[in-house]
């Protein structure tokens, strides 16, 4: 299908975007890489009056690697982050997860911040932002604010972004020194939406586990010190707490079983 008619704003600065958002609010949508929004426009799942193309804004395409983490601007493409050797050496779990984000052809345009703002519950990047305890920076005509991933990702395709705000940056903190990490995903085919995606950060035997695709938003839990003996019960309790859902790809029961089995394999490999 084709998109319904809309006005197209070619923004040249963040101020252009926030002014347009202040005027149009929920009737406007921000277009960056377009790998989620364009599909939704084509299927007329969304029919905004105004589309604000931010791809001409300078300085939003930067990746900054600092002592405490990686900060990416709103125009950093997923493929650009994956190709950034310094950033990927600092956070190998992101390098691993990015290979599961769509396909090469969509990563070439899809942005990191766009995926966060879209907030698909099975998406890898929101899961990682939450697992690592990161935050997004939101700008509006009222000012800027930082919102932790745990407050930002509120549910299925919904975030704490107000209608007059745009995501300008995302910050992925480095795990503590010496921590190990791992990522695992099950999907029908590689590159498809995850049925279950799991990320794990371990300091010694102390484990933090992030889970996508099971609840209506990604979830991260500190499991504390685990052993091969205690882990199955901890994962079983977690699987029942999250519940999961039935859809055309998998049943809730299958999703819970993936948490038990893939979760166990991932955690034991990471702490080994």
């Amino acid at each position: 299908m084709k998109p319904a008619p809309f006005d197209l704003c070619l923004a040249e600065s963040v101020a252009d975007v926030t002014a347009a958002l202040a005027e149009h609010g929920e009737a406007a949508r921000i277009l960056a890489g377009g790998q989620s929004l364009m599909a939704m426009l084509n299927m007329r799942l969304t029919e905004p009056q105004l589309v604000i193309d931010i791809s001409g804004i300078p300085d939003l395409d930067r990746i900054e690697v600092g002592k405490d983490g990686i900060t990416v601007g709103a125009l950093v493409r997923q493929a650009e982050l994956a190709a950034h050797e310094e950033a990927m050496a600092a956070l190998p779990i992101i390098a691993e997860a990015l290979t599961h984000v769509g396909h090469m052809q969509t990563r070439n345009r899809g942005t990191v911040c766009g995926s966060l703002a879209h907030a698909d519950p099975s998406a890898e990047l929101p899961l990682l932002l939450l697992l690592l305890g990161g935050h997004v920076t939101l700008a509006s005509a009222r000012g800027t604010r930082q919102v932790a991933a745990s407050d930002f990702l509120v549910g299925m395709l919904s975030t704490a972004r107000a209608p007059d705000e745009m995501v300008t940056h995302a910050h992925f903190p480095l795990p503590p020194k010496g921590a190990r990490s791992g990522f695992r995903e099950i999907s029908r085919r590689h590159g498809d939406f995850a049925i279950v995606a799991l990320g794990c950060i371990a300091q010694g035997n102390s484990v933090r586990l992030g889970i996508g695709g099971v609840a209506d938003a990604p979830v991260a839990v500190d499991l504390g010190d685990v052993t091969p003996e205690t882990l199955p019960e901890a994962l079983n309790a977690l699987a029942w707490r999250l519940g999961g859902y039935d859809d055309i790809h998998a049943t809730a029961r299958y999703r819970r079983e993936l948490i038990r089995r893939i979760g166990r394999d991932l955690i034991l490999e990471t702490i080994a």
Partner: peptide
């Protein structure tokens, strides 16, 4: 026309992209 099939793939500035997901 929603970025799944790849039939419309073209190259933009040397990168393979979906031409149905670009204005």
């Amino acid at each position: 026309e929603h970025g799944v099939c790849g039939a419309c793939t073209v190259s933009v500035d040397g990168k393979a992209v979906r031409s149905c997901l670009m204005l």
